[in-house]
Design a binder for these strands. Structure first.
Lengths: 160, 160
DNA sequence: TGATGATAGTTTAGATATAAAATATTTACA
DNA sequence: TGTAAATATTTTATATCTAAACTATCATCA
């Protein structure tokens, strides 16, 4: 049916993408740990909470936004709560749901870390000019749409 | 000294890069596990070995190329050896060194998986045309150079 | 030589991640 | 209503990953 042959392999693109992320991620992880004693997983978790419009997210929402499993979120939440950075609150409307909120300490720590983090990202990517960065961002947005379209198609068995 | 203000934040670029990789990685991980019962970590490890010019790599080389810690490589090698996919060989010239090689089973399994893996990547990114993919690849190469330049500069305390 | 330092790998302790099963609660509907 | 299905989270078992300490071997050079 589909006669277009894959005469263009995207494997190299994928491998480069993966390697670039690993390179930057590794550096950010190390700096966060050394400067603030916090893992990248915890930082990303706190970032989601901080940016949440209501200031609160459920365990499920956190798992979805961070793209990790539920069991992982349970463990991270346990450790962050032990650190005094977040707090669980049972949702009064649905007793299955755990709402998570930042504590004062959590908010304060995140704001400090976020400033550093953004600075590090800008430093690491400072060799890119605005045009290059915009081109990349645009291409990545297109890529995201393309991948999501493929994944959506697979979960939509409309045509058979 | 440096008067150029960071009027252009790269944070959004970094976050999009990270999310795109997570999206594809998640899908590839699941398919490798379901279709071949192999983790992404093991697949990446086998890929490095398969592509090694001499067909062999030391533990240290594997860690460097995969950008993971030495302890991680020890564990992965243990499990892959238990699976019968790789074999350790002490280097006769340096008894500290462990050379790792693919077994026949390891080679055969990897070749099957690699074909599937490349097909999945091409399918997931099939919404990108050749021009878009080339632009992205080029931008990512520039980005890699830019990041490596920053990191190299930090480890080169020549000017003070 | 033989001490000193560098290098390669392993071990250890613990954090982070997964999948799958289990639990608790809510929703839908016969 | 009441029961079955769906949903949200936790638990369990295990794999993956890190940093730091440790072991073994090699290289240097007085």
């Amino acid at each position: 049916m589909d006669e277009t042959p894959a005469r263009h392999s995207h494997l190299r693109l994928w491998l480069r993408l993966f390697a670039n992320v690993a390179l930057v991620e590794r550096e950010l992880r190390e700096r966060l740990r050394k400067q603030h004693g916090v893992s990248l997983a915890k930082f990303d978790y706190l970032a989601q909470l901080y940016r949440a419009p209501q200031g609160t997210l459920t365990m499920g929402q956190l798992g979805q936004q961070l793209m990790v499993s539920g069991g992982n979120i349970t463990g991270l939440t346990d450790r962050l709560a032990a650190d005094g950075l977040v707090r669980r609150k049972v949702d009064p409307d649905d007793r299955r749901v755990q709402q998570v909120v930042l504590t004062g300490d959590g908010t304060a720590l995140f704001e400090v870390m976020a400033r550093d983090h953004e600075g590090w990202v800008n430093q690491l990517l400072s060799g890119l000019d605005a045009g290059e960065a915009d081109d990349l961002l645009l291409g990545l947005k297109r890529m995201k749409q393309a991948v999501q379209a493929v994944l959506a198609e697979e979960n939509a068995p409309s045509e058979a």
